[in-house]
């Protein structure tokens, strides 16, 4: 069955963008192995079906191609850290 090693957990944490302390990592590794072990019951189900992402088929027709005011743009912009002349400023990252 799925055995998540320390190395695999470290890779998962990095992919997930989560820093973990050594004790957290140990606890999560234990939890994840225990949970995946339980959920491996999924293998008992016949897998002849289609992959079902949504239980409802989306059949909406496209709306009319007419220009409209963008919704709540100013309110949304106000949520960002800093804004200047219509530009959003994020912390330096490179």
């Amino acid at each position: 069955m799925a055995v998540i090693t320390d190395a695999e957990l470290a890779r998962l944490a990095e992919t997930s963008r989560l820093k973990l302390s050594a004790s957290e990592a140990e606890a999560f590794r234990r939890d994840l192995n225990e949970l995946l072990d339980y959920f491996s019951r999924i293998n008992e189900v016949e897998s002849r079906g289609e992959e079902l992402y949504y239980v409802k088929e989306m059949t909406a027709a496209p709306r009319k191609d007419e220009p409209a005011e963008s919704r709540e743009a100013a309110a949304l912009r106000s949520k960002f850290t800093r804004e200047k002349d219509g530009f959003m400023m994020a912390p330096k990252s490179l």
């Binding site: 999924i42 293998n43 189900v45 897998s47 079906g49 289609e50 079902l52 992402y53 239980v55």
Partner: peptide, 8 residues
């Protein structure tokens, strides 16, 4: 596998 089980 789980997505397939969901459709079932």
């Amino acid at each position: 596998k789980t997505l397939k089980a969901r459709s079932l």
